[in-house]
């Protein structure tokens, strides 16, 4: 399959102060995006997502490494003709109307007047902003600007869409509509490269995700194989004594109480049989032992928090808490 985006050992740093010290924004980032793929680019604020996107567009120059967009250097006309870009929190010309702005975008994409007019109207309808076509952009809310931003990114019917937080500023209905448009684009074979904080949307849309932390690529996740990558077993017990719960927590097992049962999460090859045997002997009843499906959120949290000095046990507790949204027994039972 053709490679649309290619990043090889890309590094970028910014001058941080008057002493000319440089702060790394990207360090040795390497990945490819294939044609027709939906690729999510994840990371917390300041992780280097927008820096990567700007590098792809030729808006900044990288210090080291190589970037190719459809085989061309970023920022060249050949590359720009084949991509559409939606910036994060977009602001456009205040005094232009939505229709005028999209018309400008279409004309900049080499369309003639009549095609530009037709395409602008078509996209205003697609993003459900046709009723505001003649309203100046200064009167638009954040969500409305986001829709116009998506429309301008689509104006040239690009093969590659680079979307920086496409769901940002949208209400639930707006999010649903944008997701629907992106799904439609995906089904038409467009390549989508999107950064997002909304992991649920990413999980629904993306084929692969890259997790970035501190400017370093931590992990590439194949979202079709999610759940099979992390082997954690969820053991469901009843009649687990409080003393035993305390003992499990002391040993570092995440334990959670749901209704009348306790759930203990155990790494598959971590003496699971021995633990089950021990708990059954102590009077507990094992109701179920099932694989625990790991979400993208859990992987993301694990990767981005690796640097903040937490132990794997802390992380496991944390991710379980985040996932289930319940109070850990550990916290309740620890004096």
């Amino acid at each position: 399959m053709m490679t649309v985006l290619e990043l090889r050992s890309v590094s970028k740093s910014y001058r941080s102060d008057f002493l000319f010290r440089r702060m790394p924004a990207l360090t040795d980032v390497t990945f490819d995006v294939a044609a027709g793929e939906t690729f999510a680019y994840l990371g917390h604020n300041g992780a280097g997502k927008t820096t990567t996107i700007k590098s792809l567009l030729g808006l900044i120059r990288v210090d080291a490494g190589n970037i190719r967009v459809f085989g061309h250097a970023p920022g060249t006309m050949a590359a720009k003709r084949r991509l559409g870009y939606l910036p994060e929190n977009p602001y456009f010309y205040d005094h232009l109307t939505a229709r005028e702005f999209l018309h400008l975008a279409a004309r900049l994409n080499d369309m003639n007047r009549s095609d530009a007019k037709h395409r602008a109207d078509q996209l205003l309808a697609l993003v459900k902003m046709d009723h505001k076509a003649n309203v100046r952009l200064r009167n638009f809310s954040k969500g409305m600007l986001q829709r116009v931003g998506l429309a301008q990114a689509l104006i040239g019917d690009p093969e590659l869409l680079v979307l920086d937080e496409p769901m940002g500023g949208l209400d639930p209905v707006g999010r649903y509509e944008v997701r629907r448009i992106l799904e439609e684009l995906k089904s038409r074979g467009k390549t989508l490269f999107m950064s997002s904080h909304i992991l649920a949307d990413v999980e629904t849309l993306a084929d692969r995700a890259a997790i970035l932390n501190g400017g370093t690529l931590r992990r590439l996740v194949d979202l079709h194989e999610l759940g099979h990558q992390e082997r954690i077993m969820d053991l469901k017990f009843t009649q687990l004594s409080e003393a035993m719960v305390g003992e499990l927590v002391r040993r570092g097992y995440p334990v959670e109480r749901r209704a009348e049962a306790h759930h203990v999460l155990v790494e598959e090859h971590f003496a699971m049989a021995g633990l089950i045997d021990e708990l059954v002997r102590s009077g507990s009843r094992l109701l179920r032992a099932a694989p625990h499906r790991v979400s993208l959120e859990e992987i993301f949290l694990r990767e981005v928090e690796r640097d903040v000095g937490q132990t794997p046990e802390d992380l496991l507790h944390r991710t379980v808490d985040e996932l289930v949204g319940a109070t850990s027994v550990k916290e309740e039972s620890t004096p």
């Binding site: 720009k80 991509l83 602001y91 900049l108 080499d110």
Partner: peptide, 14 residues
């Protein structure tokens, strides 16, 4: 400042 330039320069324009 408002990043409008990024949208414009991402189009095929020098």
């Amino acid at each position: 400042d408002r990043r409008t330039i990024m949208t414009i320069l991402s189009k095929p324009i020098s």
